[in-house]
Structures are given as structure tokens and as C-alpha cells.
């Protein structure tokens, strides 16, 4: 056989690893993510006495449930080859919307429902614009971000405390054994995992991310998939907004500040390349947990300065970007 240059030689080397029961190339980013997570966890467990307690695990989940929810939607968007910058502002909008509706005498349940509907509809609208007019996703969702943030601040610039028995009960559960936000995150992650892996829609998202033209030729209804992907992202962001109101007992228009950035970073660290077509929900959850672990570990290591957190995330991001670039091989030349 003629030896094909470059990329195949590399992939063949990796295939040999797999033949020996070790790895397949598409699993390398995920393996790296899980490896980093386990190493971090082990290091923390050894370095900090009492780290292996339910309390810490709880903190980890509670503290990152909202981010995790956003990341689930973002994972779909990124796998499809797009990006959604509007999620942070969407959190703020749904948070303040719910609080203000309850303040006006709404029952929290329909308020949640309306917030989720707005989130999904907003996402669907952006998806439609992106597809119908072939616009760059990051500009359209940027407009969405301005719109959500401006709208949220117009509803109220001040934080609104939510006073309703049901909401109070739910919020109190937050410090109980089954915090609602964590339940939402776990359920959403499970649903995301199943959808991505075991539904035709989920596989279509991957196909779309692998190449729009090929996907169309293979019979994927590109328009529908794109619209749904952004709708899911909007829905997840609105869910995160609900989680935020439960955690703080109030609605805040500035909630979710920079969450889009954290979410993109966590998803990429979770092994999903921004070029689309690959990635997994498991990786994303691992990415979110890495985020949480670093946050938990830093104060224990005596690093109380939050900026080291950003730098660490940036460094991890760089590492994963370079790893993914290396796996792609040198295109073109």
C-alpha cells in the first residue's frame, strides 16, 4: 500500500494504540479531560485533608449547577459548529423576568414556564437568522446578548427579592440534601447525554458539525437542526437563570455576567473542539467539574486571589486548543 503522508501516519500510530486496547484518536481529548480531572481530584484529596467529604462534593455541584446547565446547551451548539454568546445575558434576563413576575403576583411556576419559553424562543430566533441568512453565529448571538442584557436591565436595574412560599420552599431545599439546582443539572446532563448519543437528532448535530454540505447531501435537515440547537442552548440558559433565582432567592439583571465565556472555556476543556463535529456530554460535565475543582482547591492551597483562577483556566484552554490542533494534523500544506 502506498503510504499516505502526514495525518494518516499519525492516525495510524494512534490506531495501533487502539488495536492494543488503549485509545482511539477521537477519544484522546476526552481522555485528556478525564485524566486532568482525576489528577486534580487525586492531588486535592492527597493535599487537603477532608477533601473527600460529601460536603465538598456538594459544594462542587451546587456552586457549578448553573454553569453546568449552560454548558450542556453550549455543547450542542459547539458540536454543530456554532457558538452562542448570548447565554450569560439570557441567564440575567430570565432571572430578572421571573423575579419581577412573581413580584407582580404571578405564581413562580408559570413564571418559570414563561422564562423557559422565552429562552427557547430566543434561541430558535437566533438559529433561524443564522441559518436563513448565513450569518456568522457569533455576531447574531452577540446581538442577542445585547438585547437580553439591555432588556433585563430595563425590567429592573436593581436586584428583586422573590417572596413566594413555593419559591422559598424550593430555595430552602437548596441547603437540604437534594438541592433543586443540582437536580436540574443532573437531569439535564442525563438528558443531554441521551439526546447526543442515542437520538437521530443528536447524531445529526454531529454530522452538521462535521461539514454542513456533506450533512445536507446525507439528508440532514440542516435548518431544523440548527434552529433546535440554538433553542436548546437558550432553554438551558433560562434553566440556569431559574437555578440562579433559587440559589440567591432573588432575580438579578446582571446574573450570568461572563457566563458565556466560562461556558465556552469549560466545554472546550471538556474536549469539545470549537471547530465542531466532536465532543461529548461526559467531557462537558468533566470540564465543569474541573472548573469547580480549581475553584475549590485554590483557597485551600492558600491562593485566595480569584485571578489565578482565570489564568489557570486560560492555561488549560491553551493546552487543550494546542492538543486539538495537534490531533487535526497540519491541514492544507
Amino acid at each position: 500500500m502506498v503510504q499516505r503522508p502526514g495525518r494518516f501516519r499519525f492516525l495510524r500510530a494512534l490506531r495501533d494504540l487502539r488495536v492494543h486496547g488503549l485509545l482511539s484518536p477521537q477519544d484522546v481529548p476526552l481522555a485528556a479531560t478525564v485524566g486532568v480531572l482525576l489528577a486534580l481530584f487525586a492531588a486535592c484529596a492527597i493535599a487537603f485533608p477532608g477533601f473527600l467529604s460529601p460536603g465538598v462534593a456538594r459544594n462542587l455541584l451546587v456552586g457549578n449547577a448553573a454553569l453546568g446547565l449552560v454548558c450542556i446547551g453550549m455543547t450542542f451548539v459547539i458540536i454543530s459548529g456554532g457558538i452562542d454568546l448570548s447565554v450569560g445575558a439570557a441567564i440575567g434576563f430570565s432571572s430578572i423576568l421571573i423575579a419581577s413576575l412573581v413580584q407582580q403576583g404571578w405564581h413562580p411556576m408559570p413564571a418559570f414556564g414563561l422564562a423557559l419559553t422565552v429562552g427557547a424562543a430566543g434561541g430558535a430566533t437566533m438559529g433561524t437568522l443564522i441559518h436563513r441568512f448565513a450569518l456568522p453565529p457569533f455576531l447574531v448571538t452577540l446581538a442577542g446578548m445585547f438585547l437580553y442584557r439591555g432588556g433585563a436591565l430595563m425590567v429592573s436595574e436593581r436586584s428583586i427579592t422573590i417572596r413566594h412560599p413555593l419559591h422559598r420552599t424550593l430555595a430552602e431545599w437548596g441547603s437540604g440534601p437534594v438541592p433543586p439546582a443540582v437536580v436540574m443539572f443532573v437531569v439535564a446532563a442525563g438528558a443531554g447525554f441521551v439526546v447526543a448519543r442515542w437520538t437521530r437528532f443528536g447524531r445529526d448535530v454531529y454530522a452538521l458539525g462535521g461539514g454542513e454540505e456533506s450533512a445536507r447531501l446525507m439528508g440532514v435537515r440542516v435548518a431544523g437542526v440548527k434552529v433546535r440547537v440554538y433553542a436548546i442552548s437558550g432553554l438551558c440558559a433560562a434553566l440556569a437563570g431559574v437555578a440562579m433565582t433559587l440559589a440567591t432567592g432573588a432575580g438579578n439583571a446582571t446574573a450570568g455576567h461572563l457566563a458565556e465565556l466560562d461556558a465556552i472555556a469549560a466545554v472546550v476543556i471538556g474536549g469539545t473542539p470549537l471547530s465542531g463535529g466532536a465532543g461529548s456530554m461526559v467531557g462537558t460535565v468533566a470540564g465543569v467539574l474541573i472548573f469547580g475543582l480549581i475553584q475549590e482547591a485554590m483557597p485551600r492551597a492558600g491562593v485566595t486571589n480569584s485571578w489565578w483562577f482565570r489564568i489557570a483556566v486560560g492555561g488549560l484552554l491553551l493546552g487543550f486548543v494546542l492538543l486539538q490542533r495537534g490531533l487535526e494534523g497540519r491541514r492544507g500544506q
Binding site: I83, F138, L261, I264, A265, V268, L274, S275, N305, S306, W307, W308, F309, R310, I311, A312, V313, G314, G315, L317, L318, V321, L322, R325, R330, R331
Partner: peptide
């Protein structure tokens, strides 16, 4: 040099840059 997509490449500094600035100012 590395051929990384511009959006991704500059995202790194977008995320870490503010941390670096805070590092300089001590927060």
C-alpha cells in the same frame, strides 16, 4: 504559527487576560 482558528486562539487571552491584569494589580 500554530494554525489555530482565530476565534479560539484569541479566546485564550480573552479568558486569561483579565486574570493576568488582576495579577498585576493585586486585585
Amino acid at each position: 504559527g500554530a494554525g489555530v482558528q482565530p476565534i479560539v486562539a484569541t479566546l485564550v487571552l480573552m479568558v486569561a487576560g483579565r486574570g493576568a491584569a488582576q495579577l498585576l494589580t493585586g486585585g
